[in-house]
Design a protein around this nucleic acid. Structure first.
Lengths: 147, 147
DNA sequence: AAGATTTCCTACTGAATTTATATAATAAGT
DNA sequence: ACTTATTATATAAATTCAGTAGGAAATCTT
């Protein structure tokens, strides 16, 4: 798997804050319930988002989280790469020292193409784009999407 | 990682047979040496390639492997998917039952785009293409690429 | 027939990663 | 004080990854 549950949770967490944090702080407890994510796991994830200053936090009652910047300014790639570490599709690309054959490996050309294709999607999509998708209802059923 | 060592080994193995099997059978021992892959691990991999009839085998001295079809007829996706099982970038796509939210999950749209981007590279590249890359020497150094 | 070579088959294992749980501390509001 | 909520750190269960091991079966050579 290129993107694990942790990365997907992070993305949904950011989307959740985007959509529910118009006026007040968004509590982790509520995100966890809406998104069906174990809160203790989500704590670790939002801690990373907080340290990277992707979100601002406040403690105590009326506390919670807000985005530091508007959704337009976060690409999916920024979020996923922060949480997952890297999205290289093969270890050869993630760690140059992984293989001493890399400088004469034809497969490397392929992996680079693959990496570019992945990055074009991840870095070419912002949270705002995804919110747009959800409001335009690109779903067959009538249910309100909960990202 | 989207593609593990196993999948990369399989691809290099098929390329090795393509390039060294012009007239006689290619022995696993030699592939393992050229490609620097543990032979016992490679045995398992080629066993799968054999069962899928991607290669033909012969036993005994003068035995070895040959491609069942010319390199033009194998896409990278065919090989990788056989060995890795699937190349879905997220478990949501690999297993529909993985998440009951899938039908109303906005992230799903993203993962489908990502999946399409990955498949366009993997299914759009054949072994013959890669052999072409290697013969055209798209490398900076002078060493002969050993795929 | 004997021995060498090579493929074929199945099970096992150690390490790392993933996906959480658990416990407690810190801060803020009422 | 008491409640709410974030922050920090440690631990654990489950899964996957990347091999390793041992031998059986087929084929060729002498």
């Amino acid at each position: 798997m290129l993107i694990s549950a942790k990365g997907r949770y992070a993305l949904r967490c950011m989307l959740d804050i985007s959509l529910n944090g118009s006026e007040e702080n968004v509590k982790l407890k509520n995100i966890a319930e809406r998104q069906n994510i174990p809160i203790k796991y989500l704590e670790q994830i939002i801690s990373a988002l907080n340290k990277a200053d992707f979100v601002k936090s406040e403690r105590g009652p009326n506390g919670g989280y807000r985005l530091s910047k508007p959704p337009e300014e976060y690409t999916v790639g920024m979020i996923i790469k922060l949480i997952e570490g890297d999205t290289a599709p093969v270890s050869c690309l993630a760690d140059v020292n992984d293989c001493e054959r890399s400088d004469r490996c034809v497969s490397m050309i392929l992996w680079k193409k693959l990496n570019d294709a992945v990055n074009s999607v991840l870095d070419g999509t912002t949270l705002a784009d995804m919110i747009d998708w959800s409001s335009k209802g690109q779903f067959i059923d009538i249910e309100i999407p909960n990202y």
